[in-house]
Simulated assay, not measured.
Amino acid sequence: MAILLTGGTGKTSMHIARSLQESNIPFLLASRKVEAAAPLGMPATNFDWLDSSTYENPFKHEHLHGERISVVYLVAPEVQDPAPSMNAFIDVAVKKHGVKRFVLLSSTLVTKGGHYTGQVWQHMEDIGVDHTVLLATWFMENFSIHLHQITIKKESKIYSACENGKIPFVSTADIAAVAFHALTDVKPRNTNYRILGPELLTYDEIATRFSTVLGREVVHIKRSEQERVEQFMSTHMPEQFAKFITSIEVSSANGAEDRMNDVVEKVTGRPPKQFDAWVEENKTAWQ
């Protein structure tokens, strides 16, 4: 058995890859830029969801020591509707190469048959392939990349349209730990997991946590929906995607993420990482 990790340069895929490497389970990283970015000693291949000519690359890779890819971790491309290309690849993997199991990274707002990767979820059910869907809440790592990282570091401010909405932020390491079990356990899961962090936090509370760890005041600046769209667009984000990301923040303001569970601990045997501990571990990103 070998495992294909799409989104090969992403945070969850890299966490999974390290766990597979430590467990001596063959794997292959795949993305548009992974061959240049893959860590030394990790096999990688060029793969582009939007270019079907690359779909065969993983199955022709020469460095899996004879192991066939039978399990695939699915990470969607950053496009408005990833389902057509993802479903096309799934069909190639199943019909031409006998892939038996898929694990799909998705979000808590996605429903089977619904928007975004909901159609991928539905497709896997329709064709009867073993699958697990990971419905992950907001990543803690959102604060250490892109716009949040810049504004915390340079302005000591966090901007959002989340108002006072509570969110159970989760570490990508915890998402990856659940994914690892779904990918490697002998018995297929054939279920979905809502992956949440250990505590519900508003953005005001997040700012307070940053203030404590960084030793300077960090404040949360509340933006209207339109102001937030404009802020995203000022970073050259396409308008359609800016509206999509903002709509997720607004949904959180309205309570869409206000829930808790113990899925991470049940699946992995350990509790998810606390937000304070995560900030402490990564504080150089904002200094």
Rank of each mutant, 00 (worst) to 15 (best):
R189L: 06
A93P: 08
W278G: 08
P238R: 15
T45K: 03
T191G: 06
P82L: 13
G114D: 09
T12R: 09
E205I: 02
R18A: 05
S31V: 14
G113T: 13
G113K: 12
A93G: 13
F244E: 15
H97R: 04
Y159W: 09
M14V: 13
T235G: 08
I167G: 00
N87R: 15
S31E: 05
V133Q: 04
Q122C: 12
P58K: 03
G7E: 03
L104K: 04
R259A: 00
S251D: 10
S144I: 13
V250F: 08
L20K: 07
R101W: 04
G114N: 14
E67Q: 11
A83M: 13
S52R: 10
E67C: 11
V186Q: 14
Q287S: 11
R68T: 05
V71T: 13
I248L: 15
T54A: 06
G7F: 02
I248V: 14
R18P: 02
L4Y: 05
K100H: 07
V120G: 03
E67I: 02
T108F: 00
L40G: 10
F27Q: 12
N254W: 03
K157S: 08
I16L: 06
W286Q: 07
L4A: 10
F139T: 14
Q122L: 14
Y159P: 04
K273V: 06
